[in-house]
Write a protein that binds this DNA or RNA. Structure first.
Lengths: 335, 335
DNA sequence: TTGTAAGCGTTATCAA
DNA sequence: TTGATAACGCTTACAA
């Protein structure tokens, strides 16, 4: 019988010592109480309770190189869009006994690299990413790690492994075309932060404008999106393009900020200025007019991503590695 | 020279084999390249690059029972308030070489217990919590884990260990008193989700009302806060208390939802109905009138919490275990 | 039903 | 400057 009594955190050995058994028996009890004799069972249960034993997963991680955890790298924590994504993911992972570890990388490839290295060093079994551009070292690490990876939100041209997302370029194209169909001709694209998805939407916007023989015009900033930034960008737009009759905004924050500022300044929405946002967040349903926006199925993306990941972890062969989800345009009254 | 060539993920041994040294030398290089001979250094560097070696922290966690990681349990990911808190935390932890692991427990003590167990099983060195009510098992686990814990946002009556937060009861009291000073007498408290902080604010609201000889009235729901819920609760309030001339809202989501609905319905804010929110989020600065709100220094709370935690982890003796931070009331025009 | 032994990948310690 | 050894806590495989 070994003795381990120096540390404070209880180990299986501590329990075993008190029960008068070996840690092996306790280990068995932990995984399946039925596998030990009833008497032993009760004694162990009592000691566990008394000691407040907490499972230590580290040894298992070490010997099996598996942590039963899935890492998620988000761009930002303050964006509802990603909270919804995580909800979708968690619904699936929880049902399969996987934990999730969340980190955020603030829209930077470099930060993403560090966060991924960190998650890998904790031996996560799989990764869900929210960006499709990665540093060479990130790609290299993911390759050596050889764990399943799902890139979400976008549809990457060259997926690392699996992907679930939507075609932002096409979604933007559809939204702008809806604006054109409403008779808008001087549509300006409001952009912020200039991340990949913002660029994709711009492409869609430009394609729709050009196809209709219209001139694309962007008002962009590298600042982080916010409601107040929407107001600022609206004012810049009005100063630069006084004839502007439509705003396609890269997200609802900008759109709502602009919409509220319009009301303030007596600009009629949608008559004088049609406004379309992106993501269809709740806030758009309480402003007046209600914001027309591109609805993106974040929870669904999360669920699908997690499902794919877990299938891959279960050794299933994934035939469809890239899944596109559909977008719709909400029937707000701001357009 | 041992051989380890079955697995895919490279180990120190793999590197050592290729360099013709022992893993001990490689281990030294990893922690401090200066500690090995220049020639060795270059050879190791080359092999690491070639193999795409990723550090494995698990063995260190096992032998030192330390992970250089701090666990954070948030109630929700979709609430900006907690994103700000995390920013504050991270600014400090990053500077000290600690990683953070974020989980969320959705305002449930039971979920918090599970998430804490999970974080502890990853051997986090410290914990930052955002709730002050915990299950008995949570308390027991934290006691046995014997790691530093900071409870944030609130000021608990009986802190587990350390705490950084603000006095929500007093903040609410001050806000309501400001409303009363503006001549409002039929002030209703709008509440959602009914978590601890919502209850504390209610206490402060009731105290202020009673001290002024006024009747406290609450319109509450267990639903999750949202802008649209603000509109719903406003309508319920107007139906039940037609004379209502002030709304004290438990957060800005409700306040903004209510404010926008008022404009829609032609209710003059603040003349007919004064509105005060809580948290002073960005959205409040773009609505008109600008929302008057209780400003809560989330980033500061995060920074202080992380600082305390790291001091404790460095073995410093913490004399001031509970830190109160100040609140202010923004000078919006909705009151 | 319970026990023994070995091993997971790293680092602290001591030795050369 | 580099190496050998043991240890961290658990689980797998085998044995009793």
């Amino acid at each position: 019988m070994e003795m381990t009594e120096k540390r404070n955190r209880a180990t299986l050995q501590d329990i075993a010592d008190r029960v008068g058994m070996t840690k092996m028996t306790v280990s068995r009890y932990m995984r399946n109480p039925e596998s030990v004799a009833p008497g032993t069972r009760d004694k162990i249960a009592a000691v566990i309770e008394q000691l407040g034993y907490i499972q230590n997963r580290v040894p298992a991680m070490l010997s099996k190189a598996s942590s039963k955890a899935i890492g998620i790298v988000l761009p930002s924590l303050s964006n509802q869009v990603f909270a919804h994504l995580v909800q979708g993911i968690e619904r699936v992972t929880q049902a399969h006994g996987y934990d999730i570890l969340i980190t955020h990388a603030g829209y930077s490839e470099q930060a993403e690299e560090e966060k991924i290295a960190s998650l890998l060093s904790y031996q996560v079994d799989g990764l869900i990413l929210t960006e499709t551009n990665h540093t060479p070292r990130t790609l290299q690490m993911l390759k050596t790690a050889a764990i399943p990876v799902v890139e979400t939100m976008e549809l990457p041209d060259t997926p690392i492994d699996m992907a679930v997302g939507l075609d932002h370029e096409q979604a933007a194209y559809d939204a702008v075309q809806a604006m054109i169909n409403k008779g808008k001709t001087q549509i300006v694209y409001l952009a912020a932060r200039l991340d990949t998805r913002t660029q994709l939407r711009r492409k869609g916007y430009e394609r729709a404008m050009k196809e209709a023989g219209l001139t694309p015009r962007c008002v962009a900033t590298e600042q982080h999106s916010s409601f107040s930034l929407g107001e600022t960008l609206l004012n810049q737009t009005l100063a630069r393009y006084p004839n502007c009759d439509g705003l396609f905004c890269t997200n609802d924050d900008l759109a709502v900020g602009a919409l509220l500022a319009c009301k303030e300044q007596g600009i009629g929405v949608p008559e004088a200025l049609g406004i379309v946002g992106y993501n269809a967040l709740d806030i758009g349903t309480v402003v007046s007019p209600r914001l027309t926006s591109v609805a993106t199925p974040r929870e669904l993306i999360g669920e699908r991503s997690a499902t794919l990941l877990i299938q891959a972890l279960s050794g299933e062969t994934i035939t469809e590695k890239v899944h596109a989800v559909a977008h719709t345009i909400t029937d707000g009254t701001s357009l």
